[in-house]
């Protein structure tokens, strides 16, 4: 709807590229960007990191959530120039070239994703929560996910998956009320647990 057009009519905007240095998933990048280039567009179309999805461009849906200097941010509400000198983590950096993280595995086992469009933002945000609050409870997880629109799953398997990782991280071994999905996973020979609790920071 051309809502993004920032300029007053008839007044051509003077834009000059600005040089920024960012560290994205551990790799240092120097880029020249226009001041109005959104962080989401920078990541997706300049760096080719298309795992960060754009679902609303007004900060509600959470699909574009990344971490900037360790803090979750909506990449659609930031300009790339604002991240000059910052470290950015996107979904591509979670497992890198290695094994899936416990949270990724838990989502897989619980059928916590269908179309997968909201998944990257949820992985980043939930990973951040588990890093700050390793034993986060269901209410905290639900509150976190209220900032992430998922239209496929009805959320329950996502909450179950995050809660399972939180419990494992908190050292609980007993299964609670929401172990149904885990049992389903067991039934087909898949490993029932998300693996070693490990350092929850690995998930982020």
């Amino acid at each position: 709807m051309a809502e993004g057009a920032p300029m007053a009519e008839g007044a051509p905007m003077v834009e000059r590229p600005i040089s920024i240095v960012v560290e994205v998933n551990g790799l240092r990048r120097r880029e020249h960007v226009m001041p109005r280039l959104l962080l989401s567009d920078f990541l997706r179309h300049r760096l080719g990191l298309t795992g960060t999805h754009v679902g609303c461009e007004h900060g509600v849906c959470g699909a574009c959530t990344v971490r900037v200097d360790g803090i979750p941010a909506r990449a659609c509400l930031m300009f790339a120039v604002q991240t000059d000198g910052c470290a950015i983590e996107t979904v591509e950096g979670l497992a890198g070239t290695g094994e899936l993280t416990p949270l990724q595995r838990a989502l897989h086992e619980a059928h916590g994703l269908q179309c997968g469009f909201c998944t990257p933002g949820i992985l980043i945000a939930a990973g951040d929560l588990l890093e700050r609050r390793p034993g986060a409870d269901r209410a905290e997880i639900e509150a976190l996910l209220s900032g992430h629109v998922c239209r496929c799953t009805g959320y329950r398997p996502i909450v179950d998956a995050i809660e399972r990782v939180a419990r494992d991280a908190a050292g609980h071994t007993a299964r609670g009320d929401h172990a149904d999905d885990a049992d389903d996973a067991d039934a087909n020979g898949d490993p029932g647990g998300p693996g070693d609790p490990g350092d929850p920071g690995e998930a982020a």
């Binding site: 979904v91 591509e92 979670l94 899936l100 897989h108 469009f117 990257p120 898949d190």
Partner: peptide
């Protein structure tokens, strides 16, 4: 690395093969 092959995959609560790419941000939308 699914468990050993046996008959009767139909009817099983098998988690999806689609998931891995999506979880890694390797979806192709």
């Amino acid at each position: 690395d699914q468990a050993v092959a046996t008959r009767g995959w139909i009817g099983r609560a098998l988690p999806r093969f689609e998931d891995e790419a999506l979880l890694r941000g390797r979806g192709r939308f």
